[in-house]
Design a protein around this nucleic acid. Structure first.
Lengths: 238, 238
DNA sequence: GCCGCTTATTGTATATGTTACGATATACTC
DNA sequence: GAGTATATCGTAACATATACAATAAGCGGC
């Protein structure tokens, strides 16, 4: 074991990709970096995350981050992968923020990323509801298909995580219900499946293969005030 | 960001689960810890791995470890997951070895584990060929179904990695050829599939579904000196 | 009230893949 | 050459995935 290795300890952080579905498209929960430096000097959106605490397990840290961001403890959390490229913290904007926020020279950060699926509630605003900086919330949902430039390699992390979601959902489609609202229509669930699988799904086959599974129960409620035939609501029975 | 987090930097290491198939059962390549302390004082078998070097990417480190252990560069390497439990380095035997080998007080190590599949060659001995300590090699193949107690949480890492292999092979069975010898019989390939899938596979269905794929080409060679009908050899065409 | 627009809902036929199962061929041993 | 152990091959039932079209319901405008 060489000397180089012995004296080198990178920082270790945990970042969480929290995904939701608003009935129309996949969303990711992003947080805004603080006001330490003028906003235009850095990419101010990032994944929720922080450095690892002493005596804290990785899973613990992820759960803590998710709880603190969303206000509730969420079960479906899966470690996804580690990112440790030496260049991932080399963007000058990121360096500036690190030195300002952490008040310490940061060489390199190895981060462990986690995936979590979550129901979107009204408490966390959408980006579109907050147009001005003054009302700009410190966290909000953003559509994954149209993301701006994020801090560090967080765009890459989200892309990789989506691929992982595609794979996982292919094997266990039930996991997608974590993102669905309590009541949903067949079209909403189909849109989610389409976005996750990346292909168009035939309406009739979807009704046959998915909508009449035992864990999907139809309710006696229908949409209101829509300019077409109202869709029935369903709910998920675990 | 609290003070606790700022002053804490765990060590980061990379460990590699290198799997092979000897025609009969799945094997994992393990290395032996050095002779710094008498052998009976610690669990002397571990996964090949080391601390991360400065300015070294995680994938780089994994490739370097695999190359140095196996003598050749191998393409199929996949990051699997990170392990960071504070208690994973708390076994007294491991603490003793760390302090002896690394000559430094080690608090905690976050390790990133990698999976690699590899053809077993004669250069790396099987455990059964090395019975005495004197001839005990510093690395050898061990059957995954019958492992002794390993260092740290390496038994756990191997178990998790096998499950990942099961999942991956379910989607891309071709990857299993990385572990097969250049010439192989249908029964050998079937045994590997059985061990990876965990179920018995029907001989005839296997011949139909797998053996007549375009990338499996039959050779005009047959087994020699077997006490039953000789099996044909095949090879893999990428 | 009627027409046009939009979306929701339902079934059938075909192709493809998966599972189950039995018979014959070949090489060796005694 | 009889017995034994393994290799090799095919077919039928079954389950799964895909392709495809007509009708129903609510709203808006006239």
């Amino acid at each position: 074991m060489d000397k180089d290795a012995l004296n080198f300890d990178p920082h270790v952080s945990v970042d969480c990709v929290i995904l939701g579905f608003d009935g129309d498209s996949l969303q990711v929960l992003l947080s805004r970096r603080g006001n330490e430096v003028p906003e235009e000097q850095y990419n101010n959106l990032k994944l929720p995350g922080r450095l690892l605490h002493t005596d804290e397990d990785l899973d613990e840290a992820a759960l803590d981050i998710i709880t603190s961001v969303t206000g509730k403890c969420h079960p479906l959390v899966k470690q996804f992968r580690a990112y440790g490229s030496p260049s991932r913290t080399s963007n000058p904007k990121d360096v500036l923020w690190l030195e300002t926020a952490i008040k310490q020279k940061i060489g390199r950060i190895v981060t462990i990323s986690y995936l979590s699926l979550m129901r979107i509630t009204n408490r966390t605003p959408h980006r579109k509801d907050a147009e001005t900086l003054a009302s700009y919330p410190d966290k909000a949902w953003y559509p994954v298909q149209d993301l701006p430039q994020l801090a560090f390699d967080h765009n890459l992390i989200i892309q990789d995580t989506l691929q992982e979601l595609y794979r996982m959902a292919g094997q266990q489609p039930q996991m997608l219900f974590e993102m669905m609202p309590a009541k949903f229509t067949a079209a909403q669930l189909r849109r989610l499946h389409e976005q996750v699988s990346g292909k168009k799904i035939d309406v009739r086959n979807f009704a046959k293969l998915v909508m009449n599974k035992p864990y999907i129960v139809p309710l006696n409620e229908w949409e209101q005030n829509v300019s077409h035939r109202a869709a029935r609501f369903y709910r998920f029975k675990p």
